[in-house]
């Protein structure tokens, strides 16, 4: 499972990176989203998979999956949400103010 997860994460990273390298701002944001999914899955995978029950006491399980990565991912998800929201709004503001969402046209070296 870990191996296949690693490959999946790799693919997610590949796709995300490709999207980030394109010119359109929206694609870039989507790319960061995909990468963050990849990161979250990676943290989970790195914590070890399926080695026990869910980290809730008082149920049937006696062993638990690694709970620390889960807490980390939770934090990461929320932070990522915050950043994505800001980024999204910024990008549409950029589009509305500057009239383009093409990163190639946002070079800004012309004013030298």
């Amino acid at each position: 499972m870990e191996t296949s997860m690693s490959i999946l994460i790799g693919v997610l990273f590949t796709i995300g990176t490709y999207l980030i390298l394109t010119k359109s701002l929206l694609r870039i944001i989507l790319g960061t989203s995909i990468i963050s999914h990849g990161v979250n899955l990676l943290i989970l995978t790195m914590g070890g998979l399926k080695s026990g029950g869910p980290p809730l006491l008082g149920q049937h399980d006696t062993t638990f999956t690694d709970s620390l990565p889960q807490a980390l991912i939770l934090t990461a998800i929320v932070i990522n949400f915050a950043v994505t929201a800001l980024f999204l709004v910024l990008s549409y503001r950029t589009y509305k103010t500057l009239g383009t969402d093409n990163m190639d046209q946002l070079r800004g070296i012309e004013d030298e």
Binding site: I20, L25, I28, T32, I35, S36, V39, L42, I43, A76, I79, V83, L86, F87, L90, S91, R93, T94, T97, L98, M103, L106, G108
Partner: peptide, 20 residues
């Protein structure tokens, strides 16, 4: 706006790599 877009993008990437 133009520069902060780039700034945020780069930093988002670096944050992802940090988590990695």
């Amino acid at each position: 706006l133009r520069e902060s877009t780039k700034y945020i993008l780069i930093n988002v990437i670096s944050s992802s790599l940090f988590l990695l």
